[in-house]
Amino acid sequence: MKPKHIGRAELGGPATKFYEVFARATSEDVLAHVGSIEAPNDDLAQVRAWYVYDQLPWKEMCVVPTEAFISVTERGARGKIREM
C-alpha cells in the first residue's frame, strides 16, 4: 500500500509528496501548523505553500516533508507499547 505522504503524479510531472506548512505572523507568535501542501519538490512546495496559505502576511513560513515526521505517539492511541 502506498504511504500516505506520497501523492499522485501530476500532469506531465513526477510523483508528488506531502509537506506540512508552519507559519507565524509576528515574532511573538509561535510557529504553528497552518496546513499541508502537495508538490513534486521542495522549491514548488515553498511557492505553493506561500500562495495557498496567504491569509496573513506571514513573518515566517516553513515547510517540512510529511515523511520527515517521526510519530511519538501512534495516531489515535494513548501510548505506544513495545511489539513482541
Binding site: E10, T16, I37, E38, L44, V52
Partner: peptide, 11 residues
C-alpha cells in the same frame, strides 16, 4: 499541473 499549481500561478 494541479490545483495547488493553479493557486501558485494565480498568486
Amino acid at each position: 499541473r494541479s490545483l495547488p499549481d493553479f493557486a501558485a500561478l494565480l498568486g
